[in-house]
């Protein structure tokens, strides 16, 4: 399960992820992080069993947590199945099935590479 974390200025300097790992014992994978002096945005991958616990623990620390069920949305009226999104995705979210582009949104870490690469502007990141 993927969690999108938005970290507010007041707590961005705290070791939030480390605290949550110690508290929950969850194995988390940081898939994407952009953090500067004032705020941060992080995508975590957590097992389904630990997801609730990790989410609650982060929220207690003041982090805004969103469950990314469908991180990337495709507008099927614009997509022509060209494949410009296939080879550039670092996590293999899109592949061809009989030359139809099929998405597995669960793999998406919201890096946004496909959004700018799509010539038909058919892709959009949710909550962005």
């Amino acid at each position: 399960m993927k969690l999108l974390l938005r970290v507010a200025p007041g707590i961005v300097r705290k070791p939030l992820i480390a605290s949550v790992i110690l508290e929950t014992g969850a194995l988390v994978n940081i898939e994407r992080a952009s953090i500067d002096a004032v705020s941060g945005e992080i995508v975590l991958d957590v097992s389904q069993e630990k997801c609730r616990q990790v989410k609650d623990a982060l929220e207690r620390l003041g982090v805004d947590v969103i469950l990314l069920e469908i991180p990337v949305i495709r507008d099927d009226s614009e997509c022509v199945h060209c494949g410009a999104c296939v080879a550039i995705c670092p996590t293999g979210t899109f592949h061809f099935e009989d030359w139809r582009v099929v998405g597995e949104p669960g793999r998406c870490v919201q890096c946004g590479a496909c959004v700018t690469a799509c010539p038909h502007r058919a892709l959009r990141l949710v909550l962005k």
Partner: peptide, 13 residues
């Protein structure tokens, strides 16, 4: 190296 098309083979068909 991974390849991908930019034209649509589905639509060509």
């Amino acid at each position: 190296v991974a390849t991908s098309s930019l034209s649509s083979l589905l639509m060509a068909r």
